[in-house]
Design a protein around this nucleic acid. Structure first.
Length: 718
DNA sequence: CATACATGCAATAGA
DNA sequence: CTATTGCATGTATGT
């Protein structure tokens, strides 16, 4: 948990943000790095790594090394859109940090939310202050490292929204790199020894040392250090314009470094990423010009310092207690969450979420999140899994990513969407560890299928999780594994009722992932509010029109708060299916996409399949469905049966879609029906556009609403 | 040609 | 007779 933050500054940004005078730094013999495009690690890490890293990440990676000055990414959206500069913070990051060495989790969801739209575009518009979780105390061998990388990759499949963001923005890469051992020494002290030696971390905090020890190619490390970080970031540009202001910035930074070298590692710094646009905007708010930059830099540094130290404390609490740590984090997160949620739900206050807004005079209006600009709508580029809220940002504003049909539609994610990194949560998935007895619940007692196929089913991921834990040795790891297995078993047996897990439908804690701010009221509100019908007008009940109306975001947040849990939930996107006529007909069954089903749902041994409880995200009702398959030719056709009531109660029709998630904490499955039809009255224009393709039978949603929650579903709550 | 999936439709069960 | 179940077939798409 050493909160490692990477201050990633890239290219053009430098021009705008002459933050540090590379020279000044060099003079002092201390180096500051900023990641540059050429990531040594990327190349070194196996191919998988590359795969794992979204190609989009290029934004991060593709920085011209030659342009060291690049401190920030150019593509960052305007501040308003991203009120929160997130660092991997709290929620998401924390867990990750604790459990997993990977900063992956770090990317705070907050980031996600704001960046949501960008993600798809692969835009690196984010500046991510990511706290990195690199704190893996356990010594790592090269072999381990490799393994870890692989594991991570696997995990990536399950990535959470948050993670997606990371990946999209190339954060993953950075995260990956973070784990790698690099020698920060140059930064903080005179180098005596070889900088290449990973072993040199005397100056680092204990946790960091452990983490950093992790290894890897020294050469790479060195390279990173040289290119990416320091020199790259600061030097280049400044050299160009050695203005006094620039020097000031450099000086400020340098001074800060000197005073904090004990507590903050180069890695930490390296992990701080801030969007260019964000920086620019922030700087403007702070007075603009060099002075503004200077102020901003100070703020950032302060923030880094505070959070870093904070996290470290947490880390210090124990080494082998990943869970403990995780829990702790959660607490923090939760506690904080409430505070900020109003302003920026996606951002965990205490978490590393870097919220410039708090510092800035005029925080951007909430609406900014809901930016409806085309940019926000990932209809193009690497479409993130529709289900990913963050990515989609506004998927209809649905915090669960079910999203706005607009964005989501056509929902089908690329087949390889699973490559989206795992979310922090996944790593942190300590629920199993931490005691979420009901994790298995979703299976209705079905012993075999692990709640998280991704985790327990697949060796890779599983190990990854375990490994990510902080076991110091392989032995320790094994023990942990064993422990985990036994717990799993217990959970599975114990779990009887699906909807009732500890997770309950009620305020979950420890969200590592923050859902993006609510979308347009009309769309999201209803669900958020636990109203049965998704966005169908008729189905929207109780919510006074006003509530749903334009007040939008703020209100939404308020509602969410009231609702408590919805605001933050750790849901992992599993799959989605555009409903066909046959799916919404009276057959009461929905054909599921084979690949996703096999990948994310429990493996089916028999044709009869297994009962599977699906909690309706919108209503919190638990529908007892059956997941099964039919032999089909030489293959299988996967179905979700007993979906009739669900479909009717949600007024789903052909062209609408369902999104299935798994609650990362409880392991239960969550389902959400998303209507694609044009939102009645209040529907925003955009939405309308999006619906374009597909069978948009804009038939008035006959609201079967009347059916409401009916028989089959076990009402867990509501 | 292979695969995935939407849907038709026969077989069966229940009213 | 209707509803349900399960399989088979047709079509679209990918390789």
């Amino acid at each position: 948990m050493g909160l490692k933050k990477e201050l990633v500054m890239h290219g053009e940004d430098l021009q705008n943000f002459d933050v540090v005078a590379g020279e000044g730094i060099k003079d002092s013999e201390e180096e500051i790095w900023f990641e540059t495009a050429s990531h040594p690690f990327e190349s070194n890490n196996n191919d998988e790594n590359k795969d794992a890293n979204m190609s989009n990440e290029n934004d991060f990676l593709d920085v011209d090394v030659s342009d060291p000055s690049s401190l920030f990414y150019a593509d960052f959206p305007p501040l308003p859109e991203f009120p929160c500069m997130s660092s991997s913070s709290s929620s998401s990051s924390t867990p990750v940090a604790t459990v997993a060495p990977k900063p992956l989790g770090v990317c705070s969801t907050a980031t996600t939310s704001s960046s949501a739209s960008t993600a798809s575009s692969g835009a690196a518009s984010w500046a991510v202050l990511k706290s990195d979780a690199d704190q893996d105390p356990e010594p790592v061998t090269d072999h381990d490292l490799v393994q870890r990388v692989e594991e991570r990759e696997i995990l990536m499949d399950d990535v959470d929204h948050c993670m997606d963001m990371m990946q999209n923005f190339g954060c993953i890469d950075m995260l990956e790199n973070t784990d790698i051992c690099w020698d920060p020494s140059p930064l903080f002290e005179d180098n005596n020894g070889d900088e290449n030696e990973c072993s040199q971390y005397q100056f680092l905090q204990p946790e960091e040392v452990l983490v950093n020890r992790q290894i890897v190619d020294e050469d790479e490390e060195e390279r990173v250090f040289e290119h990416g970080v320091v020199s790259g970031g600061m030097g280049g540009q400044n050299s160009g314009e050695p203005g006094s202001s620039t020097d000031d910035l450099a000086l400020v930074f340098f001074e800060w470094l000197k005073s904090n070298k004990e507590a903050i590692s180069a890695e930490d710094l390296r992990n701080i990423k801030i969007k260019k646009s964000t920086i620019e905007n922030a700087a403007k708010r702070l007075g603009g010009g060099k002075e503004g930059m200077k102020q901003l830099l100070k703020l950032i540094l302060q923030w880094v310092q505070n959070h870093h130290l904070q996290n470290k404390k947490m880390m210090m609490s124990g080494e082998d207690n990943e869970f403990h740590a995780v829990n702790t984090d959660h607490k923090n997160e939760n506690a904080t969450t409430s505070d900020t949620s109003a302003a920026n739900p996606s951002c965990a206050p205490e978490s590393q979420c870097f919220r410039l807004t708090t510092w800035l005079p005029a925080p951007p209006p909430p609406q900014s999140y809901v930016s409806e600009s085309p940019v926000m709508v990932p209809m193009t580029a690497p479409p993130p899994p529709p289900g990913f809220p963050p990515t989609i940002g506004y998927m209809g504003g649905d915090p669960y990513g079910g999203g706005n049909p607009t964005a989501a539609y056509p929902p089908m994610p690329p087949s390889d969407y699973h490559t989206w990194g795992p979310t922090p949560m996944q790593y942190g998935m300590s629920p199993h560890y931490g005691g979420y007895p009901d994790a298995a619940a979703p299976f209705g007692g079905y012993p075999n299928p692990p709640p998280y196929p991704g985790f327990y089913y697949h060796p890779g991921p599983t190990e990854g999780l375990v490994r990510l834990g902080s076991s110091a040795t392989k032995e320790a790891r094994k023990k942990r594994m064993a422990r985990q297995r036994s717990q799993m078993a217990e959970q599975q047996h114990a779990a009887a009722v699906v909807g009732n897990g500890n997770c309950g439908v009620v305020a979950p804690h420890g969200n590592w992932v923050y859902w993006p701010p609510p979308p347009p009221p009309q769309v999201v509100a209803p669900q958020q509010v636990n109203h049965p019908g998704p966005m169908v007008g008729q189905m929207m009940p109780p919510q006074p029109p006003i509530e749903r109306a334009a007040n939008g975001y703020q209100k939404q947040v308020g509602i969410e708060k009231k609702q408590g849990w919805k605001t933050e939930k750790n849901l992992r996107f599993l799959l989605q299916k555009v409903l066909k006529q046959s799916d919404v007909g009276n057959l009461g069954r929905i054909v599921l996409p084979k690949k996703e089903a096999e990948t994310h749902l429990p493996e089916l041994e028999a044709r009869d399949g297994i009962p599977i409880a699906m909690e309706d995200i919108g209503t919190s009702r638990v529908w007892n469905m059956r997941y099964r398959f039919w032999p089909n030719n030489k293959s299988r056709m996967y179905l979700l049966e007993n979906t009739g009531d669900f479909v009717r109660s949600n007024g789903l029709q052909e062209g609408d879609f369902i999104v299935i998630y798994s609650d990362v904490k409880c392991g239960k499955y969550m389902i959400r029906g998303v209507k694609v039809r044009p939102q009645q009255q209040s529907a925003k224009p955009e939405l309308t556009n999006k619906k374009s393709n597909k069978t948009q039978k804009t038939e008035p949603t006959s609201s079967p609403a009347g059916n409401g929650p009916s028989s089959s579903p076990t009402v867990t709550q509501s």
